[in-house]
Design a protein around this nucleic acid. Structure first.
Lengths: 187, 187
DNA sequence: GACTTAAAGCAAATATTTCTGCGTTAGAGT
DNA sequence: ACTCTAACGCAGAAATATTTGCTTTAAGTC
């Protein structure tokens, strides 16, 4: 057979829209609710299925187990293609971006998902914060600053994440600005 | 009846030594092994019981569920009364203490337990890092430095914890020193 | 050393989760 | 519109986890 008529996508066709998408949305919403109501440990697949109005089997087949499901949903919860702050000033951009981060994780559902992500992380490819690091890298690259990404990770992302996980009530309004100030003060 | 003969401890007697302690030790060891072998999500109580050579019922009755058990064990894993560095120099003490922290969490079992702790945290009273914060407070207080604990939390503990959870392979030998240097550089 | 009882063990009953085979629905490509 | 098939739903079976009532062990106290 000639290869010319093959579509761009190799593998088997995916069903990305319609019913599959509806199931995904229902499951996502159910997981967010349940996980913030009861904590990750108490969330089971049959429970999510019932809340989502979906058959448990569908969840088992798509994700296999609760940990993978939660990690997957935690990873993609902030759209990776949303517009990033772009004022021309690196410091202002970082502050705005960090502020978004804090605000995002002030939602109980987002915090709970992060806890789930943390529980499932460590094995390299399950890391629900990788998109966040990619964003930081982008901001720094665009500004052509010599600031290493690791500095932003250690002194902005890490403190926010720590607080989200262990002391969520300390996520105050000026945390983002404080951390970014400290980042620039140190050099 | 007269109150004079009552022992100092009010409530019911506790069985702290002997068999109870043996069960606790066996369970702790089993949890550490299993949790670093397979990850928190895959660790069940019957599994721990078998590995520990203990009856599942004993675990159910003592902790109720896997999350509580893991969180409890994660909290007390570094002895809270071990001697802290005391060279007379705050910076050296903090560096030594941070180094201990990094080394501790380089053990896969300790990292895995921290993941479990993170998953169960957020509700205020389950916080497996509270002893670590207390230690930092002690170091600062003893030195009479004006450095707020939050600075140590944000710029030393948080980066270490972030790396333990999400990027364990970046826990290099000079991380502790780098973070403490940065802490003092900024002021 | 005898007494009291907290904590552990055991076994059977119950509840819940996970898997499997098969029929149905509906997206994607022609 | 028609075809192909990925993904879903359903129902029953199998595997696991959790609870419960009772017995046994041994820590703490006198």
């Amino acid at each position: 057979m000639s290869a010319t008529s093959r579509p761009a996508t190799p593998g088997p066709a995916r069903r990305t829209g319609g019913r599959s998408a509806a199931v995904l949305a229902a499951v996502r919403s159910a997981v967010e609710d349940l996980v913030s109501e009861r904590g990750i440990a108490q969330v089971t697949i049959p429970m999510v299925a019932e809340r989502a109005g979906v058959n448990p089997t569908s969840i088992y087949r798509r994700w296999g187990d609760a940990a993978s499901m939660i990690n997957d949903l935690a990873t993609y919860r902030i759209a990776p293609d949303r517009p990033l702050p772009d004022t021309g000033d690196l410091r202002a951009d970082l502050t705005g971006w960090a502020q978004e981060l804090v605000e995002h994780f002030r939602q109980p559902a987002a915090a709970a998902l992060l806890r789930g992500g943390a529980a499932a992380a460590g094995d390299g490819d399950s890391d629900c914060l990788r998109n966040r690091r990619a964003e930081a890298t982008m901001l720094l690259d665009r500004a052509g600053s010599g600031l290493p990404v690791d500095e932003v990770i250690d002194h902005v992302i890490a403190p926010v994440v720590y607080r989200v996980l262990f002391r969520p009530w300390t996520l105050d309004d000026d945390l983002a600005a404080r951390l970014v100030d400290r980042l620039f003060a140190g050099r």
